[in-house]
Simulated scan of single mutants.
Amino acid sequence: MIVYETQFLENQKLIAEAKSLENAGFITKEQRNEVESKLLEFKHQKNIFLRIALCILGSFAYGSICAFISLLGLNTIERDLTVFVYLFAAVGFAGTEFFAKKNIKGQGYDDTFIIGGQLLLAAAVGVTSDGNELLIAIVASIVACLTYLRYLKTISILFFAIASTAIVVFGLFELGSIGKTILPFVLMIYSLTLYFICKKVIVKNPFSYYRKGLVWLKYFNLVFFYISGNYFVVRELSVVLLGNEIAPDSDITMAWFFYAFTFLVPLFYINTALKQQNRAMLWIGLATGGFTIFTIRNYYHVLPSAVALTIGGLLVFAIVYFSIKKLKDKTTGITFQPDRFMNTSDFMHTEALLLTSQFGLKPEVAPEASPMEFGGGDFSGGGSGGNF
């Protein structure tokens, strides 16, 4: 199913491991370069800005090919526009296949073709079905899954996550007001189910070529689980979808549940991340915690914004300060010790800057050279040269 040669995929994992060992200080940069020179790897762009620039150039190339096809069928384009949209989508998949055969992966312009192919195919299905959202979501989900299984593109697994969620949403819309009412709970169950499926597959086969995409899908569902039950999201959607007018002194149904959900889920994420030492989950917990604060401030203005920000900053500073004090001497479990498998130079520079600003330390200045030179007897007869 995978279009790439297995040897290239194995070499990619070995090169990634070599980079990890270099960051941890186990091998030198020269040793890592020697490993890379002996392994065949994909033609890819390491610089993210150049990759974006190549992606933009690829979009011009894609558009030029589609324009050329349009000129060839200029006489029939007015009669059947749908055929051309399918042809444009086929160009995207054909280009992706071509680049994959050349072992080009992550170069920039190959990303343009796979993104364009999937989006244009979804648009073509929309034109054919007169905008049937459920059918578009089903086709987009299947195509995204198949393209990821073949080309191992992370963007495809994100398309699959969004499209598969859209299937659940539009499927519930077909049930009318009942489906819209139970939408948050169904989405929470769906995201949790998909999360545990991904987690189980990763544990059973941790070295699979599909591991990276499954990890992205797992964390996407963590985020979507929180969004599904967030009070702000549920309240606003109940107004939009159900047309509920919420009076100033009233609230949505089961508001207590969504309040508790909005508060407790970020805390659960952070606590689990610290226990499992999972950095990605920790960032998700902090991000969802920030959105919880936004939710509270959106409906309850207890303090002025300036005062709330000041108190919040002081609270965060106190938590960080006492956490560092407690964890800085620990070497196991939850610790403040630097991770050898990440580049800590930025952290060390930040630490030095904080120490300088806190204690008024200044860089050491070399003393001015003394005009008295010993050893030659040029001054005061102190040397052995005999000159006075």
Rank of each mutant, 00 (worst) to 15 (best):
T154W: 03
Y219H: 07
C198S: 04
L214K: 15
Y148K: 02
G176F: 10
I142C: 02
V223I: 13
L120K: 11
L217V: 01
A163Y: 13
G171Q: 08
F224A: 12
L222Q: 12
V139R: 07
F196R: 08
A144T: 08
L194R: 15
V186M: 06
I197N: 05
P206L: 00
L187M: 07
V127P: 13
E133W: 02
N205R: 08
L149W: 09
L217R: 05
K218D: 07
I138F: 11
V223G: 10
I178D: 15
A163T: 09
G126M: 07
F159N: 14
K212N: 05
L135D: 06
A161Q: 11
L121S: 08
A161H: 09
V169F: 15
K180M: 13
L121Q: 12
P206R: 01
K180E: 13
S191E: 06
G176S: 07
T112P: 12
A144W: 00
I115A: 14
F185T: 03
Y151F: 13
L183M: 11
T112L: 04
N221L: 14
G213N: 04
G171C: 10
G116P: 09
T154M: 15
L119M: 10
A124T: 03
A124I: 04
N132A: 04
C198R: 00
F220V: 06
T128E: 10
S129N: 11
I115M: 13
V143A: 12
P184C: 10
G176N: 05
L222E: 11
C145E: 05
L192Y: 03
L149C: 02
